[in-house]
């Protein structure tokens, strides 16, 4: 019982070979990508997380380096992530994502349409192989995606920049470490409306592990998250 509610378990069928995580700036993509990658490693021998964020020099998958090493997840990341070099650099081994088809990949894409531009390079190979999902992360409690219409606007901008269509929605509505069960439940009608407006299914609803335990049976496709500490939290706590 506890096992089913703990982090790093995906509540439904196996992942595609490539899962792209896109969404609004600060929607929680990196946290979800790291959790998905570790979860994927339970079912797949060779798993990689590719940090293709060209927007934000902070809050990178590299913050979770110790966990990823411990769980034997390969990290594909620019050597400049989390340094003072503030440039939109891509990892030198990024083409492993499309060239190595034995690798199960989670792609952490930068925020908004600007972040999604990076997919221009990978799109032809991803479409040709056609074994992928592209999930949009939404958070009702972020000010610029607070209404379903705003979330749809971001979705369309991302799709236009990526020149690819999203295939599912991850409802990651949260208020950071203050999130309550009620906050998650209150976000469900919002997520359902985004789903209805976009025609995309809600593939996952996330909650931090301890909150997720209380949501058991109340939320479909619940994905408990082990929240990753970013550089600020590691510095001041």
């Amino acid at each position: 019982m506890v096992e089913n509610n703990s982090a790093f378990r995906i509540p439904h069928s196996a992942l595609r070979r490539v899962t792209l995580i896109v969404g609004h700036y600060g929607s929680g993509k990196t946290n979800i990508a790291v959790n998905l990658a570790v979860a994927a490693r339970r079912e797949h021998e060779r798993v990689a997380i590719a940090d293709l964020d060209i927007v934000n020099p902070y809050f990178r998958t590299k913050d979770s380096l110790d966990l990823l090493r411990e769980k034997d997840v390969r990290l594909i990341v620019s050597e400049y992530a989390n340094t003072n070099l503030d440039i939109p650099a891509l990892p030198q081994d990024m083409y492993a994502v499309t060239d190595d088809r034995g690798l199960t990949c989670i792609l952490d894409i930068g925020g908004d349409d600007r972040g999604a531009l990076v997919l221009g390079r990978l799109r032809p190979a991803i479409l040709e192989e056609n074994d992928y999902e592209m999930w949009l992360v939404i958070n009702k409690y972020r000010p610029l995606t607070a209404t379903p219409a705003d979330a749809i606007e971001v979705l369309r901008e991302i799709e236009a920049a990526a020149n690819m269509r999203c295939t599912g929605i991850v409802n990651n509505s949260n208020l950071g470490r203050e999130t309550t069960v009620a906050d998650v439940l209150a976000s469900i009608p919002y997520a359902e409306e985004v789903s209805a407006l976009s025609g995309l299914p809600i593939v996952l609803t996330t909650a931090e592990e301890t909150v997720a335990k209380e949501l058991d049976g109340k939320v479909k496709d619940l994905f408990p998250l082990a929240l990753q500490k970013n550089f600020i939290e590691r510095k001041i706590q």
């Binding site: 600060g26 409690y141 208020l175 203050e178």
Partner: peptide, 16 residues
Amino acid sequence: MADKVLMKGNEAIAEA
């Protein structure tokens, strides 16, 4: 806007 929103400090400055 909802009772509380999750914001970066920079966004809070802009919205305020």
